[in-house]
């Protein structure tokens, strides 16, 4: 694709679970190397937005364009999206029956048809970057939550994605584990990775985000640079949310 396309564009995206409207008229644009942080109260549709981007959920209205190509239900289209978009889950979702190394190499070997040896080297490279290279032979159950989440980040990176999605990557972690994961994410942002991160870590957002998105009840209420969003939010809902979350920290 040509470089003038935004990495991701959402136009009037809507999503319903039965009659319940989880997303309504969501419009977003994400440029290459842009870092976007989405925040908002629980149940506001943050997860749903990013799950629509890699089609873990299907949107029912509007368009989602990834690198200029619209997401459709065509399986080849879905395969492409899954290759180009990496996802990190709140609860890590590592494969418990596979070693750390196998967790990382499975995608490249099966999806990218990469030779085993090359996949192994790639996996070790990324494990090194998330600082757990010595534990490649372990199983997820033998690691702390923070380590597991860093493995999950490495697993997503092994697919060499153009866009990384993070869904509250630190909210299931013990407090002392959080900074290790955030460090890895900051580093990734520094390397120019395009990313969307759902998080309540406002320190991280201030440091890394180019764009803050605030959602409430399935709608985007505010979009803007963090300096504006944190210092003078325009909506009452965002003000209320910020006062709650910042007083808490």
């Amino acid at each position: 694709m040509n470089d003038t396309n935004p990495m991701l564009e959402m136009r009037g995206v809507g999503k319903w679970y039965g009659d319940f409207c989880a997303l309504y008229d969501v419009n977003l644009k994400l440029q290459r190397a842009e870092r976007m942080v989405i925040c908002g109260p629980s149940g506001s549709g943050k997860s749903t937005v990013i799950r629509c981007v890699n089609r873990l959920e299907e949107h029912q209205a509007g368009q989602i364009l990834l690198d200029g190509v619209e997401l459709t239900e065509d399986t080849r289209n879905i395969e492409r999206v899954r290759r180009e978009v990496g996802m990190v889950f709140q609860h890590f979702n590592l494969f418990p029956h596979l070693s750390i190394l196998d967790n990382l190499t499975l995608g490249p070997i099966r999806n990218l048809k990469m030779p085993k040896k090359e996949a192994r080297e790639l996996a070790l490279h990324y494990l090194e970057r998330v600082r757990i290279a010595e534990q490649a032979g372990k199983y997820p159950g033998e690691m702390s939550g923070g380590q597991q989440q860093r493995v999950a980040i490495a697993r997503a990176l092994c697919m060499k994605p153009k866009l990384m999605l993070f869904d509250e990557p630190t909210s299931a972690l013990d407090p002392e584990m959080i900074s290790g994961v955030l460090d890895v994410m900051v580093e990734l942002a520094g390397d120019g990775m395009t990313m969307i991160c759902v998080t309540h870590e406002m320190g991280f957002a201030r440091e890394v985000a180019d764009t803050m998105v605030f959602m409430d009840r399935g709608e985007i209420v505010e979009v803007g640079p963090p300096s504006e969003f944190f210092n003078n939010p325009t909506s009452d809902r965002a003000r209320l949310f910020l006062s709650q979350i910042l007083s808490h920290h």
Partner: peptide
């Protein structure tokens, strides 16, 4: 469910 989703997210086919 998270296992299905993680498998999807790394691009495995339904069979894999």
């Amino acid at each position: 469910r998270g296992q299905y989703e993680a498998a999807d997210a790394i691009g495995l086919t339904r069979r894999d």
